[in-house]
């Protein structure tokens, strides 16, 4: 009965502070982004310009696609450490298909996306049915994928890709390019999948409490495998776009550093390593935060190694912030 009483005693300031609290709690990364943006605009020379804004958006587009993938996996309570290596495998694959084998562009892309799906199935089935923790499974599969990419490429890159293929990602208009458009479309689709569909609801329920989910008739096995498939599928898209951007298909593209960057984005965006929590808006702003920091480090002429250390600090701060927020608010 006490809960009913509480609801009636509400004064206006507490309503506003409650609303603010709710917003910060749900969109912590948006708040961090705004603070960071203002601080950078004031203190970092050349940061505040339209060109620089557009540059950050362009740089964020591809990692955002991969980050939405890892967000789905994180929501199950799992993790995909093979992400960066899958990126390399898909990159070299699309290069081989489109240049070395001379396949039509559409077929090359479809085959590359299928490779992504296959990798996801492999990871998902291992995690779900062999019941090895995702951390170990994907660490192992990551090395297999990395080795595979090296073997099929014989260790060499494929340069100068066909211009018609490159046009998919680099056609410019209004300061932005098609890669950004694809990223935005991906965001919209994933927003529907995660926040408006029964799949997204079941995914969250599974991530929070898989026993309740199963007992409530959710096909948890399917959801768990699907999460890895979606992740690797999105990584394959990211791989194609990144290959176009650098005009070079490389088996070593991505790697552990890329995995780390993408997971950092998702975590800053509020995704929980324990499952259940993850949002499209959070992950988008998470990646934007990572890219703003990278951008500032560049503008300030600091070494890349400092950037990596800084990234580590940011991920720790994000986790601490998450904890404090959950306790205090």
């Amino acid at each position: 009965m006490h809960s009913a009483d509480n609801s009636q005693i509400k004064d206006i300031p507490s309503v506003i502070s409650n609303a603010l609290r709710k917003f910060v709690k749900a969109n912590g990364s948006v708040v961090i982004f705004l603070i960071l943006w203002i601080v950078a605009s004031v203190f970092v020379r050349n940061f505040f310009s339209i060109e620089n804004m557009l540059l950050i958006i362009k740089q964020a587009a591809i990692p955002t696609i991969a980050c939405l993938g890892i967000t789905v996996v994180l929501m199950t309570g799992g993790i995909d450490l093979s992400l960066g290596y899958t990126l390399g495998l898909c990159s070299i694959s699309v290069g081989l298909f489109v240049k070395s084998f001379g396949l039509p562009i559409w077929l090359s892309i479809v085959l590359t996306l299928l490779i992504g799906i296959a990798v996801g199935l492999f990871n998902g089935v291992l995690v779900q049915y062999v019941r090895v923790p995702a951390f170990i499974t994907t660490l192992g599969s990551g090395f297999i994928i990395f080795g595979l990419a090296q073997i099929i490429s014989s260790g060499s890159d494929i340069n100068r890709l066909p211009p018609a293929f490159r046009a998919i990602g680099i056609t410019e208009f209004g300061g932005l390019n098609t890669t950004v458009v694809i990223a935005i479309v991906t965001c919209l689709v994933m927003y529907y999948v995660l926040h408006r569909s029964t799949f997204g609801r079941a995914l969250a329920a599974f991530g929070f409490n898989n026993r309740t989910a199963r007992m409530s008739g959710i096909k948890t096995e399917r959801i768990n495998v699907m999460a890895y498939v979606i992740c690797s599928f999105l990584v394959a898209i990211a791989a194609i776009l990144l290959t176009i951007r650098v005009n070079c298909a490389q088996p070593t593209m991505g790697g552990g550093v890329y995995t780390f960057e993408v997971i950092t984005g998702a975590i800053i965006g509020g995704a929980s390593l324990f499952g259940g929590v993850g949002t499209v808006i959070g992950s988008v702003f998470g990646i934007l935060i990572v890219k703003i920091i990278e951008n500032c480090i560049n503008l300030l002429n600091v070494s890349y190694y400092t950037y990596q250390a800084f990234q580590g600090i940011v991920i720790l701060l994000a986790i601490i912030f998450e904890n404090v927020k959950n306790r205090k608010l």
Partner: peptide, 29 residues
Amino acid sequence: KLEGLVLEMPIAHNITLASLPRLFPKTNI
């Protein structure tokens, strides 16, 4: 707590959890 509810989800989501396919056959909530 372990097999009945998803404690971290709101009341509304918990109530519809077992009826999702029937309520929203087109997967659109």
